[in-house]
Amino acid sequence: EPREEEAEKYIKRANGDYDKAQELAKKDGNEEIAEAIKEYKKR
Results as ranks from 00 to 15, higher is better:
residue 4 E to P: 06
residue 2 P to G: 14
residue 42 K to Y: 12
residue 24 L to V: 04
residue 17 D to M: 02
residue 22 Q to R: 06
residue 22 Q to N: 04
residue 16 G to R: 03
residue 10 Y to L: 02
residue 29 G to L: 05
residue 15 N to G: 12
residue 15 N to M: 06
residue 37 I to M: 03
residue 35 E to V: 08
residue 18 Y to G: 01
residue 9 K to W: 14
residue 2 P to I: 14
residue 13 R to C: 11
residue 21 A to M: 00
residue 31 E to L: 14
residue 36 A to F: 15
residue 19 D to T: 07
residue 3 R to K: 12
residue 22 Q to I: 15
residue 41 K to W: 08
residue 33 I to S: 03
residue 10 Y to N: 01
residue 5 E to L: 11
residue 34 A to K: 03
residue 43 R to N: 13
residue 36 A to M: 14
residue 42 K to P: 05
residue 15 N to V: 03
residue 8 E to A: 10
residue 39 E to Q: 09
residue 32 E to Q: 12
residue 4 E to R: 08
residue 16 G to I: 00
residue 32 E to W: 12
residue 21 A to F: 00
residue 31 E to P: 14
residue 6 E to L: 13
residue 35 E to H: 08
residue 4 E to I: 11
residue 25 A to S: 02
residue 27 K to Q: 14
residue 39 E to A: 11
residue 29 G to A: 04
residue 18 Y to S: 03
residue 17 D to G: 01
residue 32 E to S: 11
residue 37 I to H: 00
residue 41 K to G: 09
residue 6 E to N: 07
residue 38 K to P: 02
residue 38 K to R: 13
residue 40 Y to M: 12
residue 39 E to L: 09
residue 11 I to G: 02
residue 28 D to T: 02
residue 32 E to A: 12
residue 14 A to M: 03
residue 36 A to C: 06
residue 27 K to H: 10
residue 31 E to S: 09
residue 15 N to I: 02
residue 22 Q to G: 06
residue 28 D to W: 03
residue 2 P to L: 14
residue 16 G to Y: 09
residue 43 R to K: 15
residue 40 Y to T: 06
residue 41 K to Y: 08
residue 25 A to L: 01
residue 17 D to V: 03
residue 31 E to M: 13
residue 30 N to Y: 14
residue 19 D to R: 05
residue 20 K to L: 15
residue 41 K to P: 04
residue 36 A to H: 07
residue 17 D to Q: 03
residue 10 Y to W: 05
residue 22 Q to T: 09
residue 5 E to I: 13
residue 36 A to Y: 15
residue 35 E to L: 10
residue 19 D to Y: 06
residue 9 K to N: 11
residue 42 K to R: 12
residue 18 Y to Q: 03
residue 25 A to Q: 01
residue 14 A to I: 00
residue 11 I to R: 00
residue 18 Y to M: 07
residue 11 I to T: 01
residue 31 E to Q: 09
residue 17 D to N: 08
residue 26 K to P: 01
residue 13 R to L: 14
residue 28 D to V: 02
residue 19 D to C: 04
residue 41 K to L: 08
residue 39 E to D: 09
residue 15 N to F: 08
residue 20 K to M: 13
residue 11 I to S: 00
residue 7 A to Y: 08
residue 15 N to Q: 09
residue 7 A to Q: 04
residue 17 D to I: 03
residue 20 K to G: 05
residue 7 A to M: 13
residue 2 P to Q: 14
residue 16 G to F: 08
residue 33 I to C: 00
residue 23 E to A: 08
residue 32 E to R: 10
residue 12 K to A: 12
residue 30 N to S: 07
residue 12 K to L: 11
residue 8 E to D: 07
residue 34 A to E: 05
residue 17 D to T: 00
residue 19 D to A: 07
residue 42 K to L: 13
residue 16 G to W: 10
residue 29 G to W: 02
residue 37 I to G: 00
residue 2 P to N: 14
residue 7 A to E: 04
residue 12 K to H: 10
residue 31 E to T: 11
residue 3 R to W: 15
residue 15 N to D: 09
residue 28 D to F: 04
residue 6 E to K: 06
residue 24 L to A: 08
residue 9 K to D: 12
residue 26 K to E: 12
residue 28 D to S: 04
residue 14 A to E: 03
residue 40 Y to R: 06
residue 37 I to T: 01
residue 8 E to L: 15
residue 1 E to C: 03
residue 32 E to L: 12
residue 7 A to G: 03
residue 33 I to F: 03
residue 23 E to Y: 08
residue 37 I to Y: 01
residue 2 P to V: 13
residue 8 E to F: 13
residue 6 E to V: 09
residue 10 Y to M: 01
residue 30 N to R: 14
residue 36 A to I: 14
residue 25 A to W: 00
residue 6 E to D: 09
residue 23 E to D: 10
residue 35 E to Y: 07
residue 40 Y to Q: 08
residue 6 E to H: 06
residue 29 G to I: 01
residue 7 A to I: 15
residue 35 E to S: 08
residue 26 K to N: 08
residue 35 E to N: 09
residue 43 R to W: 12
residue 32 E to D: 14
residue 37 I to E: 02
residue 1 E to N: 15
residue 15 N to S: 06
residue 4 E to S: 11
residue 4 E to K: 09
residue 2 P to K: 13
residue 8 E to T: 07
residue 22 Q to S: 08
residue 33 I to W: 03
residue 37 I to Q: 00
residue 16 G to D: 04
residue 6 E to T: 11
residue 27 K to A: 15
residue 36 A to N: 05
residue 31 E to R: 07
residue 15 N to Y: 08
residue 20 K to W: 11
residue 23 E to L: 08
residue 20 K to D: 05
residue 14 A to G: 03
residue 20 K to T: 07
residue 5 E to W: 11
residue 5 E to M: 10
residue 20 K to A: 10
residue 8 E to Y: 12
residue 11 I to W: 03
residue 34 A to H: 04
residue 17 D to C: 02
residue 12 K to P: 02
residue 43 R to I: 12
residue 16 G to A: 02
residue 38 K to I: 11
residue 29 G to M: 05
